[in-house]
């Protein structure tokens, strides 16, 4: 077990190191999320009330759009310098690689989400501090589901034609439950209600996370196999 986790950790470490040195994804992704805020503002107009009613949806729209870009890229680095071969040749259970990639993706999403959560209140004049601890629970459950499917589909689409188009086309319909659950739970939390009010949605998100994780862990080796 510890060897398994160590292999997963090595993948995370490798990706973090690559990202720190190349600064390829995260900078652009953060800039993209700021850009989204501007787009939302222009699309909705200056009225405060409108933004406030749409806030849970806007937040998740931001996370999902950033996810579509970020998660879709997560296996593209492996296409350079035959890194893919290296992954295929790795001894042991291949699902450790999936777990490592997933953890890396959750990390990237967490950074983007943190940035959006800081910037949203600033640009739209809102105060989220009271709801923040409860919001983090919703974010964690929603992000795990998004990243679990995104990592699996990202590995598939990295190896096919028209991947930029195919990735969202596969990911978005599969994420309907996560989007519905996360937006509804966020709405409840932002209305100042306790987490218990959103229990049904949190359970749904947790169940979805478990199903996606299990499918991802079990099927990843078939995706990785030589291209």
């Amino acid at each position: 077990m510890s060897a398994y986790l160590r292999r997963a950790w090595i993948v995370v470490w490798k990706d973090v190191l690559t990202e720190r040195r190349s600064k390829e994804s995260l900078n652009a992704l953060l800039f993209f999320s700021v850009l989204l805020l501007f787009i939302f503002q222009f699309a909705l107009g200056p009225e405060r009330a409108r933004v406030e009613t749409a806030l849970p949806g806007l937040l998740w729209l931001g996370f999902i759009l950033a996810g579509v870009l970020g998660l879709g890229r997560s296996f593209l680095v492996e296409q350079e310098n035959d890194c893919w071969e290296g992954l295929v040749l790795t001894p042991g259970d291949k699902s450790a690689i999936y777990l490592g990639k997933l953890a890396g993706n959750v990390l990237v999403m967490a950074v983007v989400e943190a940035a959006l959560l800081v910037l949203f209140p600033v640009f739209f004049g809102l105060d989220l501090t009271g709801a923040l601890p409860r919001l983090v629970v919703v974010l964690a459950l929603g992000t795990l589901g998004l990243a679990a499917v995104g990592t699996l589909f990202g590995a598939i689409t990295a190896q096919v034609r028209a991947r930029e188009l195919l990735f969202p086309v596969l990911l978005l319909p599969a994420q309907v439950p996560v989007l519905l659950g996360a937006v509804s739970a966020t709405e409840i939390v932002l209305a100042g209600q306790p987490l218990a009010e959103a229990a049904q949605w949190l359970k749904l998100l947790a169940a979805a996370d478990v199903v996606y994780l299990v499918v991802g862990l079990l099927t990843f080796e078939f995706v990785l196999e030589g291209a």
């Binding site: 190896q159 599969a174 309907v176 439950p177 659950g181 749904l204 169940a207 996606y212 291209a227």
Partner: peptide, 28 residues
């Protein structure tokens, strides 16, 4: 061979997702 592998993974996730979609939309 590759097509079959990728499609099978998406087909399995799609099927596993059906009950989750069903309940999420119903409660929504």
């Amino acid at each position: 061979d590759r097509r079959a592998r990728y499609a099978a993974v998406v087909g399995i996730l799609g099927a596993a997702n059906i009950p989750i979609v069903h309940f999420s939309v119903k409660w929504w």
